[in-house]
Design a protein around this nucleic acid. Structure first.
Lengths: 202, 202
DNA sequence: TTTTGTGTCTAACAAACGTTAGGTGAAATG
DNA sequence: CATTTCACCTAACGTTTGTTAGACACAAAA
């Protein structure tokens, strides 16, 4: 391996993510992480600089993954509804394919400090902005009703992010199935549609 | 005061809630809480039994507040849509009127231990069940479309709970305004309504 | 065979943690 | 006035925290 100890490093970060996800960053000790890997706490420091660095790696790594997703979607020339469905599908796929790291990304970023915290919030804002563009486009295209885009996006993202609370890999619904249902819900709402509503889709 | 030191006790719990909300339970020390009140950490123990007890008081106190709300709503004989609007309004009001304790209720209950954790989850399930009843009734009344009630409720609650992330008392929107918008969103969805949709409301 | 590097170990560190014991001074109570 | 009660204090406890220093085992490279 050209990059020294990079394989072990990823193992450590994944083990840490699992612990941070289950108990939270502050409640997880370096000794806890080490025990998971059957080594001593001090041994971790040959692969990582500090506990803080682990959190930063997870948070910024996932932030980039999510951001790449929304950028790809917005580069495609589709209408707003299709793009929103794709963005949601993308989000749910990332979330479910690495649930631990996603949960850390969603919940534990509060423990970032100083400039790292500021930088992270900016990435998060950028992601929201990607969704806002879609909602705004939808309104311009006269597909979506007039809503507060910022407000709508926060509602959408919150629905999608809550998945992390209850999704388990052995569950009945697949990632894409969940995304599809959320999309329907977000687009159509709870209220019953009349057959005369020409825009109605299943 | 008949109950000794109960006034001071509430001050401590509120101060703790503010800290737990800002930095998380594990990251907040007894010395931090004490400093906020301009006393020493040891002095706290004249009013409370342990740090854990503070968290329990906040979590179970708020759980009861939320539960009383949904019970009142479901005791009233209104249709499902009206009851859902009331339940959401109620939820948002509680959330915004004590943002710190609500945030602790939503995020920090993970730090509860043993039987307390189990008991708390049960209360949470009961609250969700209250909402599920409304959604189910709405489907029976043929007001709501056919959806997975459990799924819909989680979406609704997640939207509502995300408020805690961005709501500030000095913000432009009032508590009831937020509740009203979320209700519209949840009921109507994003997609534009045609005028032929007789159920359409603003 | 020697050298170099990598991954882990033991041992220890200073700091921070939740919590307890026992004392002090002021206010309320008799 | 004497006594009790109350809210707080100082000092300290045992534990756990993140992290560092230095040694050892084992591999590949020279």
């Amino acid at each position: 391996m050209t990059n020294p100890s990079s394989g072990r490093r990823e193992q450590i970060i994944q083990a840490a993510a699992n612990l941070f996800c289950a108990r939270g960053y502050e409640a997880s000790s370096m000794r806890d992480i080490a025990t998971t890997l059957n080594i001593e706490a001090a041994s971790l420091y040959h692969h990582i600089k500090s506990k803080e660095e682990i959190l930063e790696t997870i948070c910024f790594g996932m932030a980039e993954t999510f951001l790449n997703g929304i950028r790809e979607v917005n580069d495609i020339y589709f209408n707003a509804e299709e793009r929103l469905r794709m963005a949601i599908q993308n989000h749910v796929r990332i979330l479910t394919s690495n649930l631990s790291q996603s949960t850390v990304f969603l919940h534990e970023w509060r423990s970032l400090k100083g400039e790292k915290l500021i930088a992270f919030k900016q990435l998060r804002d950028q992601y929201e902005k990607g969704f806002r563009t879609i909602v705004q486009d939808g309104m311009n295209e006269d597909i979506f009703g007039e809503v507060d885009a910022r407000f709508a996006v926060l509602s959408i993202l919150s629905s999608v992010n809550w998945i992390a609370e209850w999704y388990r890999e052995d569950g009945a619904m697949s990632s894409d199935e969940i995304a599809s249902r959320i999309s329907d819900f977000v687009l159509g709402g709870l209220r019953k549609k009349l057959v005369t509503d020409l825009d109605y889709k299943p």
